[in-house]
């Protein structure tokens, strides 16, 4: 960096001095950050490995008889298992990735670099959310292809052709579509939760800690409320469980399905809730995460 180095090496001011900031550029920057995080690739590799192990486990169980007897039940079982697996697996990955992508900006202090160069706070948040939700949808698309291929392969191995799948009633395919829709809602919620945790805590450690413990605490909370109701015989304890995010997510698919065939995993609201209630509660939580992130990001000083 000598005095002559700039002119000698010919920094090209005309080229450099024409900034063309755009939302697409901000998204590109976030994609780069995401792509360069090795942990993300490790998690995806582990997820694929886990899928393989589960697929082998399912393949060894006695599925042939069930397929011959009731293809619809066979299909519902598969849908239950793979939907729950994706919801948990993608949830962990997206919570972790979201918390890290936003939290690192605070912990590394890079937030001040980006904002000091004129990137808008809302633009930064929107770019991150877009990239993260796109990642979730990409994971879902890949998962659907993988599970679809596995299911078709299993049916062919067990039955010799795809006739059992072709014989499924329309409601089975409707349930499949609803399951995919619930996963999309789950993806959006996980991204918003992970991001909000980072914005609230303004630290990577806080973000990851809160994001990863939210759903376990939420599900555990529902169980505690059930125990409290049993112990005290007071129906008062059932009310809070009706507005827990995890509990409503667990029951959402079942309430949406015309035949209510899926079996919720983990805790559900103590009172019976319908699809509208579950969707309203989930939307309220999502708005809280998004609104909280926007307000805090806009209003707070950046001292990191």
């Amino acid at each position: 960096m000598t005095a002559t180095s700039i002119s000698e090496r010919g920094l090209s001011p005309a080229q450099a001095r024409s900034p063309r900031a755009s939302f697409a550029g901000a998204v590109g920057s976030e994609l780069l950050k995401l792509r360069k995080q090795r942990l993300n690739w490790v998690m995806i590799a582990l997820a694929v490995l886990l899928f393989g192990v589960m697929a082998l486990g399912l393949g060894t169980s006695d599925q042939r008889q069930l397929l011959a007897k009731s293809p619809h039940t066979f299909f519902n079982n598969f849908l239950d298992i793979w939907t729950t697996t994706f919801q948990i697996g993608s949830g962990i990955v997206l919570l972790l990735v979201s918390a890290r992508l936003m939290g690192m900006e605070y912990s590394a202090g890079t937030l001040r670099i980006l904002l000091a160069r004129g990137q808008g706070r809302l633009q930064l948040l929107a770019a991150k959310l877009l990239v993260l939700i796109s990642l979730g949808l990409l994971l879902l698309a890949g998962y659907v292809i993988l599970v679809g291929a596995y299911t078709a392969g299993t049916v062919i191995v067990l039955h010799g052709n795809l006739d059992p799948l072709r014989s499924l009633p329309p409601v089975a395919w409707q349930n499949l579509g609803l399951a995919a829709l619930v996963q999309v809602v789950s993806i959006v919620c996980a991204v918003l939760l992970g991001t909000a945790a980072a914005v609230v805590g303004r630290s990577l450690a806080f973000a990851v800690g809160v994001a990863m413990s939210f759903y376990p605490a939420d599900n555990f909370g529902a169980l505690v409320l059930i125990l409290l109701r049993s112990a005290t015989h007071q129906s008062f304890w059932t009310k809070p469980s009706d507005v827990l995010l995890g509990a409503n997510f667990n029951v959402l698919l079942q309430t949406l399905e015309p035949d209510h065939s899926s079996r919720p995993a983990f805790a559900v609201p103590v009172d019976h809730v319908d699809a509208t209630h579950a969707l309203v509660v989930i939307a309220a939580w999502a708005m809280l995460f998004l609104g909280g992130s926007i307000v805090l990001l806009l209003r707070r000083d950046v001292n990191q």
Partner: peptide
């Protein structure tokens, strides 16, 4: 303030894309 897990050039790229 830098992205420690990325290379020096990728740091320039990350900010460069924001600037355009």
């Amino acid at each position: 303030a830098l992205y420690g897990y990325m290379s020096g050039r990728d740091n320039l790229r990350a900010v460069g894309r924001v600037l355009g």
